[in-house]
């Protein structure tokens, strides 16, 4: 290796290090999630659901925000994870960690099978194929009610104590902490993925689908790999939710949830990791409050939120915040 290439490599490594450096707002964010536990003890079940949804949205962000693969049926994998964990618990094995992992593994396998199809279509066809897979699976779960409970959902599942010590309590304290810990670990994994050279290749794929192969990038391979990773995380999110609510509803496979998670991600902002957390929090809290206020018509405001976000912001709440920050910076510079 010549000195020149060595220098170039060192520069590239330094570049990747710089990208992956932790920003000042990141610890604040996670401290906020811990603070929720102490500040809103009566809202812990909501907090747990927000975390699961955020993880689910994060998995969608990996393929959509980074890989540029739009899916209208991502809840396929969320549902598979949830049903795997639920069915294991129902038929005698309720150990939370292994159930969680099993949910992730089955979702990953399903994602691997789907990936052969996904990487071959684009545009409206891609929307339709993802939606179609989702619909077929929903119909199967709906009809196979002897196994899945059909429209009534999977009932009578009991998970054992976490680590054999902490029992799921009625206030949802154990569920919240357990979920937060798992979500944080998986966030670290996702963070590692997007700041790696592989993550950079994904961004290239999102930005210019035609030019990347000219650079020697194996697009289909990258696309399939991130799809499987994303499916695994979605499955883990589903399994987490099943464990915290001790129930699997049929609508965990419903197209509505696919659209909901897309909404969360868009409201938060795509391709910025924290967008999924911000979006899930805004969406779930707004929905919680609106549903209390007016149970029949809250969808109107969710719809309005979507329209406003698409028409007036560049990239959801996170995009709007960073635009505002840039504006203040420019103004500050202009004044000094």
């Amino acid at each position: 290796m010549t000195a020149e290439t060595q220098a170039a490599n060192a520069a590239a490594v330094a570049d990747f290090r710089a990208r992956a450096r932790w920003q000042w707002y990141e610890p604040i964010f996670w401290l906020g999630a811990i603070a929720w536990y102490f500040l809103f003890p009566t809202y812990l079940p909501l907090g747990t659901q927000v975390l699961c949804s955020a993880l689910f949205a994060l998995s969608l962000d990996l393929i959509l925000g980074y890989g540029g693969i739009v899916s209208l049926g991502h809840t396929t994998f969320f549902g598979i994870g949830a049903y795997t964990a639920g069915l294991l618990a129902k038929y005698g094995w309720g150990e939370p960690i292994t159930c969680l992992l099993a949910g992730g593994v089955t979702a990953a396998i399903a994602g691997w099978i789907c990936s052969f199809v996904i990487v071959r279509v684009q545009g409206v066809a891609l929307l339709l194929v993802t939606l179609g897979i989702n619909l077929v699976l929903y119909e199967i779960a709906n009809k196979a009610y002897t196994i899945t409970g059909g429209a009534d959902g999977l009932q009578g599942i009991v998970f054992w104590k976490v680590f054999g010590v902490f029992d799921y309590d009625i206030e949802g304290r154990v569920a919240y902490i357990y979920t937060l810990a798992v979500v944080f670990l998986l966030f670290l994994v996702a963070r590692r993925i997007v700041y790696s050279p592989f993550g950079l290749a994904l961004k290239g794929m999102r930005e210019n689908w035609k030019r990347m192969p000219a650079l020697g990038a194996a697009l289909r391979h990258h696309g399939a790999l991130i799809f499987v990773l994303s499916a695994a995380i979605a499955g883990l999110a589903g399994a987490l939710l099943a464990e915290s609510v001790q129930f699997v509803a049929l609508d965990s496979l419903g197209v509505q949830r696919s659209v909901d998670v897309l909404t969360m991600l868009i409201v938060g902002g795509t391709g910025v990791l924290y967008g999924s957390f911000v979006g899930a929090t805004v969406y779930m809290v707004v929905r919680d409050q609106l549903a209390d206020l007016n149970p029949a018509y809250w969808y109107f405001w969710i719809g309005l939120m979507l329209v406003v976000v698409v028409l007036f912001t560049r990239n959801g709440v996170v995009g709007a915040l960073s635009d505002a920050a840039a504006w203040f910076q420019r103004r500050g510079r202009a004044q000094s």
Binding site: V70, Y299, F300, I302, G303, L306, V310
Partner: peptide, 24 residues
């Protein structure tokens, strides 16, 4: 001129609004 995804989301937003409006 926007991306496909934006069109999808905008029109999904309109679906939600119209569902609520029709119910109202």
């Amino acid at each position: 001129a926007a991306k496909e995804l934006d069109q999808v989301l905008l029109t999904v937003g309109i679906i939600y609004m119209s569902i609520a409006a029709a119910a109202y």
